[in-house]
């Protein structure tokens, strides 16, 4: 049913995304799909990596660790943005289209008061992505 799944990953909060990552790998194993972890970062040194290359290596490692022994083909893609806070959704949507994905599996937080002002990233992706989006709550 699905061939290519994109999983947006916020490396900073990879722990909170455990369920989403596990679900993505299981679904991919079930349908024989490939999985691509997608992360967004800036070219400036950040908390997780000094350069985008270092960031990509970490993302790839995470994907490979998650898929180990599951027989799922994984890849990692890093999008370099001038302003990750503001451009996150746009960058992710571009990546989803570019990857020709037919499924997005994404971790998201439980809706709260703040979502009345700021839609969560997951909600925005679900609203705008051209493919099925599976939102998985962090808790």
């Amino acid at each position: 049913m699905f061939q290519r799944a994109v999983v947006p990953i916020d490396l900073k909060h990879a722990e909170n995304l455990k369920k989403a990552r596990a679900a993505a790998i299981d679904l991919a194993a079930h349908y024989g799909a490939e999985v691509r972890y997608v992360g967004v970062t800036s070219a400036l040194p950040g908390a997780l990596a000094h350069t985008p290359d270092e960031f990509e290596a970490k993302l790839k490692q995470l994907a490979e660790d998650d898929a180990a022994g599951k027989g799922v083909a994984v890849s990692a893609q890093v999008i370099v943005s001038h302003d990750p806070t503001a451009d996150l959704e746009k960058s992710l949507l571009d990546a989803i289209r570019a990857a020709d994905a037919d499924l997005v599996v994404m971790g998201t937080h439980v809706p709260n008061l703040g979502d009345g002002f700021w839609s969560s990233n997951g909600a925005l992706i679900a609203r705008h992505a051209p493919v099925s989006v599976f939102l998985i709550r962090a808790v």
Partner: peptide, 9 residues
């Protein structure tokens, strides 16, 4: 403008 970010605003 700050909400739209560096490139968009």
């Amino acid at each position: 403008s700050v909400y739209r970010g560096l490139d968009g605003g």
